[in-house]
Design a protein around this nucleic acid. Sequence first.
DNA 1: ATCATTTTGTTTCCCGGTCAACAATTAATC
DNA 2: GATTAATTGTTGACCGGGAAACAAAATGAT
Lengths: 155, 155
Amino acid sequence: MTKEEQLIMNFRDLFNKIAWLNKPKMEDRLKGYKPSEVHCIEFIEKNRETNVTKLAESFYMTRGAMSKLTKKLIKKGLIENYQKPNNKKEIYFRLTDQGKVIYNIHEELHKQFIERDKAVFEQVTEEQFDSMLRFVEKYNKHLDAEIKKQGLTTN
Amino acid sequence: MTKEEQLIMNFRDLFNKIAWLNKPKMEDRLKGYKPSEVHCIEFIEKNRETNVTKLAESFYMTRGAMSKLTKKLIKKGLIENYQKPNNKKEIYFRLTDQGKVIYNIHEELHKQFIERDKAVFEQVTEEQFDSMLRFVEKYNKHLDAEIKKQGLTTN
DNA sequence: ATCATTTTGTTTCCCGGTCAACAATTAATC
DNA sequence: GATTAATTGTTGACCGGGAAACAAAATGAT
């Protein structure tokens, strides 16, 4: 196996483990709220004028999936939708007060997870950090170009 | 956002894009075979004495899911199962000739994807590579320890 | 202004994975 | 050796997301 493959595989494994490890605590503190729901709430709070299409593109999911998810969140009273006066097509979302409670709990948990892994990150020099960031950003740009070349669209 | 978060987020995005970008070519050359099926075939070929439980642990999925998946692969004639003479409980899998054909096509595609991203990796020095590998391995070990601490098990 | 094209969001059907309950076998404990 | 506990694999109910067909609105072309 080449180093490229090793690196990719190790990172993939890393993310599987992180998700696996975070799940129980998430479910404990955020009972009744699925990861996808919380993730959606997080995005809506952090981005202005979010609609179904933007959510789909960001999460690499279909508009259909996000349509259902946002409908559920509305039903649960976590988000609400609004439109602009001059546009009858696009529908945007914002958090309700209840949604913000969930958002804050999630942020807090997130900090705990960072804290849990602090030991690892402390051993990384600033130099290494920047090097990795440069790499991953370069790689992302490369893929963006490839995606554009292929002309892929969100379903 | 801290550098830690930035790094993690960028990598997550990276993997989404890779999956998104590889999908169409995979579906083209491996028509009729789903990513999960191919992934499963790959693992069985690369690991000795694979059973449902080992697959579940490696893929961070449930035994139920892998049980269904392997049953489907058997039905399609891509894998076959066998047991050891002194153990009536554990059931292992190996590829059939037809399964090996799929395996080889996948390997070939994999090389093409590596080739596509070669430009990025070429700009990485050996030093950087090793540095990143060390980091991700350290992080993985840290998480393994955390998982062990939590006493998590595959469902 | 009219008509075609594109964008946005929704809905139905289907598939894949989880969960939980289960039987069968093996390992551990006494 | 008998009994209890743990492991392994399977099944059915359930749910989340994808694919595709669709309506409504906005944009473009003429």
